[in-house]
Design a protein around this nucleic acid. Structure first.
Length: 427
RNA sequence: GGAGAGGUGGCAGAGUGGUUGAAUGUACCGGUCUCGAAAACCGGAAAGGUCGCAAGGCCUUCGAGGGUUCGAAUCCCUCCCUCUCCGCCA
């Protein structure tokens, strides 16, 4: 959520910056709504003040044992207009809030302007894609040949966009997550957290999934208590740990790492990546989250990106880093770097991590604050990034480490997690 | 699932339908004292919104939402959450 003050004071500048996304801010509608809000609010508060003071007078007169029937009748009269106005004010304030909840974040000044993926800015390429002496297979074929990756059974159990893994490949999947957690906790100073995978609507609103993107989520009904949502990323539960909190200055930055499953309905992506494990309803991810001092959040973003890159370097997987342009960024982000890993079978780089600074956008929705140098509460900045997506890392390892006979070499960094196993072969 | 108790400021913990936004303690900040610290004493300090150049004013907030009342932390209703006991259970 953007700062309402900013919209009041300089809505044209806000509109201009949002136009780069592109997002058409209805400045006139907001101005009209706010003007109405102002009128109703000041009148309401005037009447509330009058009510409070006359109620106080009644109390005082009663204390002196005087007759208060006239005073009470007068006060009752004023209450009629007030209750109507209070309702009206509530309505208007809800409208203002709904309006603001729908407006995406402002792109940071360093974000390149552009319409879509083609305008993203490549920052660097690390590692050289290997040359194969044979035609590399994709992970789906490799997994089928190994007899350890089974989409048909998953479809029987659940439906499309799920997978069943077995044996050494299932273990490799686990090893990847363990390895990432170990690196981030031992070397990068993150605190490991375990969190709920079902969250309430307030949490989803806090990080920006609701109200706009409900169709991307899986919901679980539960009677009068509303519903639970399955987390689409650990970002949601982990970032919401600081919702409605005031974090002491000296605790910043908070750095959390969390391995969790992620659930996405993938509505609207029919026909996209239908083969294999690239796009699933359920996948595992190791997520990095930072709660930062506003003045240090961009340092934090560079560091966080580096932490994610470390994993790819250790696994010796070729990748590149790109800065998303204004048109390709997510709703809540002020700046986003994507890391894309090389997939030989697709002859392309594919997203394996997305690292973003949300500045105060999520913090304002969550009322996540810290006590600043002056002792005043101030909104924190929130950041997160995949470090990394586990399923896609598995895919990248299979494809980049495949041998001519269809076996998979275990990357050196993961061998300790595989009981020393060198190659994954058909069982 | 059944029975009971409870949700108040960073934490602990009072609270009567009427100058209570809320005693008191503790933690925190400033000051006095001290070579320095501790202790003691004095003082300051909730959050959000809104108006204002500012000083400051006003409004809202005692789990959430409704209701009764001139006036609700206090009374009524619904919901959520926590704790204790029983049942069930990984």
């Amino acid at each position: 959520m953007l700062d309402p003050q900013l919209l009041r004071s300089d809505i044209e500048a806000v509109a201009r910056r949002l136009a780069a996304r592109p997002y058409a801010l209805n400045a006139a509608a907001f101005a009209a709504l706010d003007e109405q809000r102002k009128a109703v609010q000041s009148r309401t508060q005037e009447l509330q003040a009058a009510r409070n003071s006359s109620a106080k007078r009644v109390g005082q007169a009663k204390g002196r044992g005087e007759d208060v029937s006239a005073l009470m009748a007068e006060a009752a009269q004023a209450g009629v207009e007030l209750s109507g106005l209070e309702m009206k004010l509530q309505e208007i304030q809800d409208k203002v809030r709904d309006f603001l909840l729908d407006v995406p974040n402002l792109p940071h000044a360093s974000v390149p302007e552009g319409k879509g993926a083609e305008d993203n800015l490549e920052m660097r390429r690390i590692g050289t894609p290997r040359t194969f002496g044979f035609a590399p297979q994709d992970h789906t074929d490799l997994g089928a040949t190994l007899g350890q990756m089974d989409f048909e059974t998953a479809t029987k159990i659940a439906g499309s966009r799920f997978v069943v893994m077995k044996g050494p490949l299932a273990r490799l999947h686990r090893a990847i997550a363990q390895f990432m957690l170990d690196v981030h906790t031992a070397e990068h100073g993150y605190t490991e957290v375990y969190v709920p995978y079902l969250v309430n609507a307030d949490s989803m609103r806090g990080t920006g999934q609701l109200p706009k993107f409900e169709e991307d989520l899986f919901a679980v009904p539960r009677g009068d208590a509303g519903k639970f949502y399955l987390v689409p990323t650990a970002e949601v539960p982990v970032t919401n740990m600081v919702r409605d909190e005031i974090v002491p200055l000296e605790k910043l930055p908070l750095k959390f790492v969390c391995h969790s499953p992620c659930f996405r309905s993938e509505a609207g992506s029919y026909g996209k990546d239908t083969r294999g494990m690239i796009r699933q309803h359920q996948f595992d991810k190791v997520e990095l989250v930072q709660i930062s001092h506003p003045e240090r959040s961009y340092e934090g973003l560079e560091a966080l990106l580096g932490h994610a890159e470390t994993i790819l370097k250790r696994l010796e997987l070729p990748y590149r880093v790109i800065t998303l342009c204004t048109g390709d960024m997510g709703f809540s982000a002020a700046k986003t770097y994507d890391i894309e890993v090389w997939l030989p079978a697709q002859n392309a780089y594919r997203e394996i991590s997305s690292c973003s600074n949300f500045e105060a956008f999520q913090a304002r929705r969550m009322q996540a604050r810290f006590r600043n140098e002056k002792g005043r509460p101030e909104l924190v900045h929130t950041l997160n990034g995949s470090g990394l997506a586990v399923g896609r890392t598995l895919v990248a390892i299979m494809e980049n480490y495949q041998q001519a006979d269809g076996s998979i070499e275990v990357p050196a960094a993961l061998k300790p997690y595989m009981g020393g196993l060198e190659f994954i072969r058909a069982s």
